[in-house]
Amino acid sequence: MHARGLVKRFGSFTAVAGIDVDVRAGEAFGFLGPNGAGKSSTMRMIGCVSTPTGGTLRVLGMDSRREGVAIRARLGVCPQQDTLDPELTVRENLVTYARYFGISRAVARERAAELLDFVQLTERADSKVEPLSGGMKRRLTIARALVNEPQIVLLDEPTTGLDPQARHLVWERLFRLKMQGVTLVLTTHYMDEAEQLCDRLVVMDGGRIAAEGSPRELIERYSTREVVELRFGTEPLEDRAAKLAPLGERVEVLPDRILVYADDGDATAAAVHRLGVTPASVLVRRSGLEDVFLHLTGRSLVD
């Protein structure tokens, strides 16, 4: 996948403001950013559903504007909202979808059986879609995206709205796909998801790319090794932050806590106490992509 100066405008609103992205075959690539960053618009363009307003976009070596049908035949798409057919059974959802790709009924049934096994839904094959849990529906949507044996799978916020256990199950299946050599392109506003799944990612904000690299590289480049999180109950934080500023490389004030960025978290926590500041709680943790995002945009990712 290769994009140069990719733009998407809706009337006077610019959703994607000219981005350059390259995704290599076989890698897991992430678009990370808050809601409204332009991730979904980008995904819809890569999926050859929405036409770019400007720039070039090539997917699997083909031009997205002219060869959309041929590209879509080799893509798997897992949309943000489940679009399963509630009037059909689990199995029928897969077979019907496979038919849209011109796959014969016999092959479609065979693949449906394999994929149900892959997403651990074989026991529910003949159940209706409606009573399935959110996690099961999501796994079925992923299975549906694989029905044409795609070379690239696009996942728009694959685990948004799922409980932790369901999320881990989805991640584990996606990891297996990656092991099989399928290229994964996903959007997320969850740090842990990006860290778990992505070889490389871009941080998007306001329709632009703010940074690009592997999760590790991004953390090294834009954050310190550790972070001290200080909470002070309901007391105002601003003047305390000013007092703490000299202790870390950087200090961020969030609505409910102060973050002090330093390479040695424990030493910094001790220094906080020596200053005579007594927080209600202290947490020392490693830096994550959340911190990268905070640094790059001055805002936190999930509000």
Partner: peptide, 14 residues
């Protein structure tokens, strides 16, 4: 409500 058309638009269907 179902988004069936959106699901179809992501396949080779025109």
């Amino acid at each position: 409500w179902l988004g069936s058309y959106h699901a179809m638009a992501a396949t080779p269907l025109r």
